[in-house]
Amino acid sequence: MSHSGLTDIIQFMVMGVQRGAIYAMVAMGFNIIYNATGIINFAQGEFVVLGGLAMVTLTMALNLSLPVAFILTVVAVTVVGILMERLTINPVGQPTVLRLIIITIAVSILLKGAAMCIWGKGSHYMHHFTDAAPIEFLGAIILPQTLWIIGILLCVVIGLVVFFNYTMIGKCIRACAINRDAARLAGINDRKMVMLSFALSAGIGAIAGIIITPIIQMDYARGALLGLKGFGAAVLGGLGNSMGAVVAGLLLGILEAFGAGYISSHYMDAMALLILLVVLFIKPSGIFGSSEAMRLKEF
């Protein structure tokens, strides 16, 4: 079996897209909450972890079928997101952004601790969704799970577009994001919209956790790193811009894969970050962010 340069390139693309899809989903979660509140939710990575771990328990220990476990997991994590908002974000009267961020850090520590106490310290694995053989495409290998990840990412993106553009609630959340006072004047319950945004963001986090766990194995401590990468993607794409997040997430994943393949695996993670910094220095509001939107939400 000979391997041409082209095969390698395709292989790196595939792996990059698989990584990037997860960054993209975490980044979308960040954006939804950012748009509603102006804060970065440091507990976003923990939603991913909770989703993955809950899915492992439901499928591997309780032997539930995939669709049932999927729905149950998303619902459960969504409830965690709602509780988080009701108990920690909502009661804060006149918050500064930094204070809210530290609150989300505290919540992330709590969620991480709870995950450790519930699921233990080991790493958990689960079977791929479909146990079919890898598909060969021009000599490169594609896992069925990778296709699942890409497919579900597409569904989530389409779902969000429809939700934000064509449903009343979605439009209300967007209105709050653009101008909270004006939205309130128009009779929108902005507090409720914040809660909804946490629910949505937790749900997306859970989905990301569910689809990635068969490939990476999940343990309680993974949240921080996933969160950081997702934050990177969100910033690179321009905070608040969901389409930007998807493109930036995929871009980061692909950069990492090519960096590791062609330059050096030792500096792989640094390279993606370096490019992110360079982009920020050239365009301080991310690739797709507008400087006007940025000015609205500062510390």
Binding site: Q11, F12, A257, D269
Partner: peptide
């Protein structure tokens, strides 16, 4: 001579380099 960080999720790129 390839490496991966403890949080790595995929070593495909490194393994392709080794294969090549």
């Amino acid at each position: 001579d390839e490496t991966y960080s403890p949080g790595a999720t995929d070593m495909t790129a490194q393994l392709i380099s080794i294969r090549n």
